[in-house]
Computed example of a mutant assay.
Amino acid sequence: MGTGTAAVAGLSGTASARFGDDEDEDDPAEVRVIHASPDAPAVDVFVGGNPVLEDVPFKTVSDYLELEPGSYDVAVAPADAGVGSAVIDTEVTVEADTDYTVAATGRLADIQATVLVDDNDDDFPPLPRVRVVHLSPDAPAVDVVKDAFFGDLELVEDLEFRGQSEYLDLLPLEYDLSVRPAGGDESVFDFSADTDVGATYTAFAVGLLEPPEDADNQAFDVVLAEDVAPLSERFGR
C-alpha cells in the first residue's frame, strides 16, 4: 500500500489555475497537458508543429495555454528528439470558452492522447470541487473512499482506466482519502487533499501499481492539480 500527500502540481511547480469568468463566444479555448505515461521519458509538446512545452517530466501538469477555437495537430515527442520522433500525433478540436486537459496516457508501447473537457466555471455557493481521473495503466477499476468517523464514504465508484468522475462538491477541509479496487476493502494508495473555498481540483491517479524493480519514479501516485484558484488568491483575501 502506498501513501502520500497530494500536493497541488503544475509545470515548474506552479499551480495550473484558471480563474472562472463569464462565458464569451469570442474567448479562446484553454488547454493544458499532463504527462501520465509512467515509462515514457520527459517529453516536448508541439501544436501545429511548433513547440509549446519542453522537457516535461512524468507526473507534471502544465499551466493552461490559450488557443483560438479550431482543430490542431498535437504531437508529443521525447525531449530534444524533435516533432519527427513523435510518439503521439493526433488532431484535437477545441471550442471557444472551453477548457481542456490533454493527457499522455498508457505505457510507452501503447501511449495515446486522452482529451478531457474541464468544467472550470465558477459555482455558487463557492464550495471546493474535485474530480478524479484514472490514468494508471495497470490498475483495475477503482473506488475513492473518504475516511469518516461514522465509517468509510465512497466518493467515486468503479472508475475505469482513462475514465473521469463527476465533479464532487465538498466542504473546504482536509480530507484523508484512499484508492481501492472497485468493490474492495483494501487500499492500494492513501493520500490527503487540502481543499479551499472556491477552488476546483482534479486528482489524477497515475503510475503503476506494480512498477518494474529497476524503474525510477513509476510507482502509483495521485497528482492533485488546481484547475481554478481559491477565492483567497483571486481576490487577495
Rank of each mutant, 00 (worst) to 15 (best):
D121F: 10
G82K: 11
Q218I: 08
E174S: 15
A103N: 08
V45H: 05
S232F: 14
V92N: 04
D123H: 10
F124H: 13
N50M: 13
D194S: 14
D89C: 02
S165M: 04
V144C: 03
D194I: 02
S62E: 03
L209D: 03
G20V: 01
S12P: 01
D196S: 14
D22M: 05
L67E: 03
E54R: 15
D138Y: 12
P212K: 08
V179P: 09
P69D: 05
P41L: 02
D147W: 12
P181V: 06
E54Y: 10
V145K: 02
Y167S: 10
D216S: 14
A77I: 03
L135W: 04
D194M: 06
R234K: 11
F58C: 07
Y72S: 06
G163D: 09
G207L: 08
A9I: 13
E166D: 12
P125S: 08
E160Q: 08
D27T: 11
E174A: 14
D122I: 14
D221P: 00
R131T: 05
S136L: 07
N120L: 15
I34H: 09
T14R: 10
E66P: 12
R107Y: 07
G70V: 12
P57N: 01
A203D: 11
G2Q: 12
A40F: 05
D55T: 09
G20L: 03
A9E: 12
R129C: 01
G48V: 09
L159H: 07
D169T: 10
E210G: 04
E154D: 13
A182R: 01
Q112F: 04
D26T: 13
M1F: 13
I111Y: 01
L209V: 09
F204Y: 15
P172T: 04
A77R: 03
V8G: 13
R107S: 08
D227E: 15
V33Y: 13
D185L: 13
V94P: 09
E95D: 11
R131H: 06
Y100H: 00
A203M: 07
D110Q: 14
A193Q: 06
A219Q: 15
G106E: 04
R131Q: 12
P181G: 05
G184T: 14
E154W: 01
P126I: 08
A9D: 11
A199T: 02
L116C: 01
D27K: 15
D73Y: 00
V43H: 01
D80H: 11
